[in-house]
């Protein structure tokens, strides 16, 4: 539901980097989105494509990779949850103690490819 504002933030951050590097156009933008982020990738793609019309980013290839959720426990375990139920993201699969969700909710601009 907030994909448009997220798309705007992505565009604002990316255009700043493109302009700082004297880009004449941008050919690709690569995002990484956590599997638990409250975002719909199809809607986000649509919003970004709408926003970039008439800008340096028009026609740029948009690549989106998924970041798998990862949890960490005091017992030393760091890794995937036991399964994809919500409960499992808070419980260590090794010792069943409460665990901390450390990855999987991000929206990261990994890189952009520019033409100069």
């Amino acid at each position: 539901m907030h994909e448009y504002s997220i798309a705007t933030e992505i565009y604002d951050s990316a255009i700043r980097v493109a302009e700082e590097n004297h880009a004449t156009s941008v050919s690709a933008i690569e995002l990484e989105i956590g599997e638990l982020a409250m975002i719909n990738c199809d809607q986000l793609t649509f919003c970004i494509e709408s926003i970039v019309k008439g800008t340096l980013f028009e026609g740029a290839e948009l690549k989106i990779a998924e970041i798998k959720a990862e949890i960490r426990c005091g017992c030393g375990y760091t890794g995937k949850a036991a399964d994809d139920s919500m409960r499992s993201y808070l419980i260590c699969p090794q010792c069943n103690a409460p665990a901390e969700l450390i990855r999987g909710r991000e929206i990261i601009i990994r890189e952009i490819t520019i033409c100069t």
Partner: peptide
């Protein structure tokens, strides 16, 4: 010239 620029920033960081 094509140039790939790493960014690596999380959109939620500013928030």
């Amino acid at each position: 010239m094509h140039l790939t620029i790493p960014i690596g920033s999380d959109i939620f960081d500013a928030n």
